[in-house]
Design a protein around this nucleic acid. Structure first.
Length: 571
RNA sequence: GGCCUUAUCGUCUAUCGGUUAGGACAUUGCCUUUUCAAGGCAAGAAGCCGGGUUCGACUCCCGGUAAGGUCACCA
């Protein structure tokens, strides 16, 4: 059995020899936490140091379950994952659900599913099946209440934490007063009402059942500086923390600051990668680590992904205003996940794209991500155009079969109509997707799966719409266009080789006063009305209703003779 | 307002005192081409401002300016 007050026996025996202050602290701790809590010693044994090879990094991603997976969170997860795995370390997931107000149903699943989708499943913590793995759990902060309480109780015992009964109004009032007096605002020094409160008063408040929170008793001074070395930003001088900040909320859950210190210590995190909004909390966190005599992890404070806002300023991608802030945006539009990942890799280490160019076939995980090369600037702007380019490149490199599978998968979720069309004749659609695909001259015309239906609409024989010739501009008149098409209808054969096919179009072009190729045309522009391209364009438009398509010869091969004839006689 | 961070082509960035300031995306042009793409080649495009230090500064220092962050019982 645990003893109740977490004290080694010999100290318990010498309880009587404590100073009055120590004694009262211990009584207070007992009064505040009468429940049976695990002892610090037992916790420290329960979470032993990790046995990892030298240089191994233990990283984590610690989202709060808001039902929304931010692209910035994914960026952080990617970097954390790469760094840990590159060093044979551990990358784990911890759910930071200490804010009950923000609790959203099914939010954890959004996190695990998103991570899974992008190939960033954690080594420890909750997986897609909802089951936790790993020996350093539980990995949900709401399930670690007793752990936090044990440590807070310890802090009270040693006089480094105390209850505060201030109401919201009271706090606001001090803040106002501080503003009037033009002094630093916050709960500190003389402004910390309950910092050195009379034990009797505290006891009375407690007896009255007054609501309270627990504050950390800071020993720092705003006048002093601490020197901190950020993995990204280098050496930074910050003022010491002197605020008695809340560590345990009235709902019995810890604040981020406290949970961070306890969890990252117990779980053996070596490198904390987090948003740079945390940078100014470093003095507090350092003091907290010191209070427990824990070793401080290394930190890298990473700037968020931004966008230009309405007024021209930079702002973090916003959950409410920017659809692309939500990682699900990319799935809904049908971006290949790997394109998003590689875009993010590029943001993380700008030399990634050079590596990618030199190693087009390697997995991105073979790239050595350098912590030192993470940008230490103010935060990049999200560049959809650049992402699009990467996506096009990725899709162009895919096999027709894989493309079919991906588009089918996407459609079954977001476009059942297209799914049905695709499933009707898989072989046909794979042939469609094979056009201009493979080799190094693949078309880069698809950015996301959602575009495929529209781009390949003319391949859908059942729904082919008669081309709208009024939108077609040509130096040829309607009669000539009609004549070209009917002439072509007479001569074309699907048995023709691509050369022969070309020959026939050239012949028609010549009949109508066009040069058979661009070279001839350019040499002697005056003698021709144009070159064969313009005639081919007419046939293209008749067959597809479009001016931009892949190779027309192959299109006709896939469409088949009957369909081609049908379309050539429509006009 | 205090404290902290950041500042190079339109965008992401390289450079760690001496470079014609490099690359990628985007843009434009040319070549190639049956169209459209792709591809190849090329062009335009940048050191916030002002002071220092130095033989020499994008790089180091100081000041200004601008942008971002932080100053919660949210993380």
């Amino acid at each position: 059995m645990e003893n109740n007050n977490n004290l080694p026996l010999n100290e318990q025996e010498s309880l009587k020899e404590l100073t009055p202050e120590q004694k009262s602290n211990r009584q207070l701790a007992e009064r505040l936490f009468p429940e049976d809590l695990p002892s610090i010693e037992s916790l420290l044994t329960r979470y032993p140091d990790r046995e990892l090879p030298k240089g191994a990094m233990v990283t984590r991603i610690a989202p709060s379950p808001t039902g929304f997976m931010h692209i910035g969170g994914m960026y952080m997860a990617l970097i954390s994952c790469r760094l840990a795995h590159q060093t044979n370390g551990v990358y784990y997931l911890r759910i930071e659900d200490t804010d009950q107000k923000r609790e959203v149903e099914g939010a954890r699943k959004v996190v695990t599913d998103s991570l899974h989708k992008f190939g960033l499943d954690p080594d420890e913590g909750e997986g897609i099946n909802g089951v936790e793995k790993g020996a350093y759990g539980p990995y949900r902060q709401s399930e670690r209440k007793d752990i936090y309480k044990s440590f807070i109780k310890h802090l009270v015992e040693i006089g480094r934490a105390y209850p505060c009964f201030c109401s919201e109004e009271e706090l606001e009032a001090t803040h106002k007063k501080q503003e009037e007096l033009n002094v630093k605002s916050g709960y500190y020094g003389v402004w910390a009402k309950y910092r050195n409160a009379d034990p009797n008063i505290v006891e009375e408040m407690l007896n009255q059942g007054k609501p309270y929170i627990i504050r950390f008793k800071s020993l720092g001074s705003n006048e002093n500086k601490i020197v901190y070395n950020d993995l990204l930003k280098g050496q930074i001088e910050l003022p010491e923390n002197d605020l008695d900040l809340v560590i345990l909320k009235s709902d019995g859950l810890p604040t981020y600051h406290f949970a961070h210190v306890i969890d990252d210590h117990l779980m053996g995190t070596t490198h904390v990668l987090r948003g740079d909004e945390w940078l100014s909390s470093i003095p507090l966190h350092r003091e907290l680590f010191k209070a427990f005599e824990f070793k401080c992890p290394e930190y890298a404070h990473i700037a968020p992904i931004n966008k230009i806002d309405e007024s021209g300023g930079k702002r973090k991608l916003s959950k409410r205003k920017d659809p692309e802030a939500n990682i699900s945006f990319f799935g809904e539009n049908g971006y290949p996940e790997v394109a998003v990942v590689e875009y993010l890799m590029n943001l993380a280490n700008s030399n990634f794209e050079d590596w990618r160019k030199a190693n087009p076939d390697k997995l991105y995980t073979e790239f050595q991500l350098a912590l030192k090369k993470l940008p230490d600037s103010a935060g990049p702007l999200f560049d959809r155009v650049k992402l699009n380019d990467i996506a096009k490149e990725k899709i162009a490199g895919m096999k027709a079969e894989d493309l079919y599978a991906k588009v089918l998968d996407w459609s079954s979720k977001y476009d059942p109509d297209f799914k049905e069309i695709l499933e009707k004749d898989p072989e046909y659609w794979i042939k469609v997707f094979s056009i201009d695909r493979g080799g190094n001259k693949s078309r880069k015309d698809i950015t996301m799966w959602s575009e495929v239906k529209e781009i390949s609409a003319f391949f859908n024989k059942d729904r082919f719409i008669e081309p709208d010739w009024s939108s077609f501009t040509s130096k040829l008149n309607t009669d000539e266009i009609k004549s070209i098409i009917s002439q072509y209808d007479l001569v074309f054969s699907l048995d023709d080789s691509s050369d022969k096919w070309m020959e026939k179009i050239k012949q028609i072009a010549v009949n109508f006063g066009f040069a058979p190729d661009t070279k001839t045309y350019k040499k002697n522009k005056e003698s021709f009305r144009g070159h064969v391209g313009e005639v081919a364009q007419i046939i293209r438009f008749a067959i597809t209703g479009r001016t931009q398509t892949p190779d027309l010869y192959q299109i006709m091969q896939v469409l088949g003779e009957e369909e081609c004839r049908k379309r050539l006689t429509l006009i």
